[in-house]
Measured scan of single mutants.
Amino acid sequence: GQVHVGDTTYHFPNPEEARKFAEKAAKENNLQVTQHGNTFKVE
């Protein structure tokens, strides 16, 4: 799974890890998570 936060892309071998990371980043920054397959975008 990939997580895009601003201009930075994080790669995770496990989509579940990617999702947890995205949700945590979104919560900390008052942002939203959008999911496209195994790619998550925090914005």
Rank of each mutant, 00 (worst) to 15 (best):
N30M: 08
A22D: 00
N14Y: 04
H11M: 10
G6V: 04
P13M: 09
N38D: 07
L31W: 13
G1V: 11
A18V: 00
H11K: 08
G6K: 06
Q35K: 08
K41N: 10
Q32F: 13
F21I: 00
N30A: 07
Q2L: 14
G37V: 03
F40S: 02
T34A: 06
L31Q: 07
E16D: 11
Q2I: 15
H36V: 13
K20R: 13
V5F: 15
H11Y: 15
N14H: 06
E17R: 04
Q2D: 06
H4T: 14
Y10N: 01
K27N: 08
T34I: 12
P13S: 13
E28K: 11
H4V: 15
V33T: 03
R19I: 04
N29G: 12
P15T: 14
G6A: 06
K24I: 10
T39V: 14
A26V: 03
E17D: 11
T39F: 10
L31A: 13
K41A: 08
R19F: 07
K27I: 10
E23A: 09
Q35C: 06
V33D: 01
A26R: 02
H11P: 03
P13T: 11
T9Y: 09
E23I: 12
F12A: 01
N38Q: 05
F21S: 00
E43D: 10
L31S: 10
N30I: 04
H11T: 10
F12P: 00
F21K: 00
R19M: 06
E16L: 08
A26K: 02
T39G: 05
R19K: 09
Y10T: 02
Y10K: 02
H11G: 04
V5P: 00
A25M: 15
V42G: 03
A25P: 01
P13Q: 11
P13H: 09
H4P: 01
K41L: 14
G6D: 05
P15Y: 14
V42T: 04
K20H: 08
G37R: 04
Q35T: 06
T9L: 12
Q35N: 06
G37M: 05
K24L: 11
E28A: 12
Q35I: 09
F21H: 02
Q2H: 13
T9H: 07
E23D: 09
V3P: 01
L31Y: 08
G1N: 08
V5C: 13
D7H: 13
T39K: 06
P15V: 15
E28Q: 11
Q32M: 13
E43M: 11
E16T: 08
G37P: 01
E17P: 00
F21D: 00
G6Y: 10
G1H: 12
N30Y: 06
P13Y: 07
N29L: 15
H4M: 14
N29S: 11
P15I: 15
A26F: 02
N38A: 06
H4E: 12
L31V: 07
P15D: 05
F12K: 01
N29Y: 15
A25K: 13
F12L: 03
V3N: 00
K24H: 10
G37D: 06
A18P: 00
A18W: 01
N30F: 08
A26Y: 02
N29P: 04
K24M: 12
T9R: 07
F12S: 01
E23R: 05
H36W: 12
A22N: 01
N29V: 06
V33W: 11
N30T: 05
T8H: 13
N14E: 05
D7P: 09
T8G: 04
T8F: 13
H4I: 15
K20T: 09
G37Y: 05
V33S: 03
Q35V: 11
V42M: 04
T9Q: 06
H4L: 14
R19S: 04
E28I: 10
E17W: 06
N14P: 02
E16N: 07
E28M: 11
N29E: 07
V5S: 03
E16M: 08
L31E: 05
E16K: 05
T8K: 15
E43K: 06
T8R: 15
Q32N: 10
Q2M: 14
G1L: 05
D7Q: 12
N29K: 12
F40A: 03
N29F: 15
T39L: 12
H4G: 04
T39Y: 10
V3M: 02
Q2G: 03
Q32W: 11
H36R: 09
F40T: 02
Y10H: 05
Q35H: 06
H11Q: 08
Q35D: 03
H11I: 11
Q35W: 07
N29R: 13
E28L: 12
